[in-house]
Amino acid sequence: MSHHIVEVRNLRHVYPDGTVALRDVSFRITHGESVAIIGANGAGKSTLLLHLNGFLTPTAGEIRIGDYPLTKATLPEIRRTVGMVFQDPDDQLFMPTVYDDVAFGPLNLGLSGTDVEQRVKDALEKVGAGHLQEKPPYNLSGGEKKRVAIATVLSMSPDILVMDEPTDGLDPHARRQLMALLREFSHTRIFTSHDLDMVLELCSRVIILHEGEVRGDGPPLEIFRNDELLARCRLEKPLSMQGCPVCGGKVS
């Protein structure tokens, strides 16, 4: 299933004001991988994500989603393939009710009434939000909003899920629920996050961005044991890999 592949080659992006956000970024993510893109503030994570869905056009370099290079002509197909969950669910949930929001994508795909209904039902069920269907989005809790935002993307049956800071702003319980949910997905998953413990639990691979370049790319444990690399990129180990200062426990 080659359409689950994301390939970025020598991507460079310079904003109109001259800021170089991405210098030279290359990686290849294959089917079913769960990849975290981490880095300090301003490392270029958000700029990179915005390229994966064609919101920004590369200054130089190339992006391939599945078999297609990302161009104007392939954009609609690529936007269906790549489901993007934004950091602030308030940006993603703009319709009067949860149902309308989840149905927005399928309706744009031109599906018929019963198909849409089925997709909305399935997507909401998958994130455990079936009971919220008729609620207006602004009456939801943070965790509920996040899950509904994911459902709005799932209803378009994407092959690749891209999420910006999925656990941002959630309470510990909602965070746990969301992580359990994300673990179940068989999609290719790409996250950005500062929640390194979540990364450690959910991801099979970590890419470190720093100053617009890839500085590290490998399995999480390997990356997080490299103290020198983490310090250079203004990161630190996940808390679960640090010795516990309260109970004195030691982890390598």
Binding site: N53, M84, Q92, F104
Partner: peptide, 9 residues
């Protein structure tokens, strides 16, 4: 929001 709309077709 516009990006989120575009992302969903």
């Amino acid at each position: 929001i516009h990006m989120a709309m575009l992302a969903r077709g």
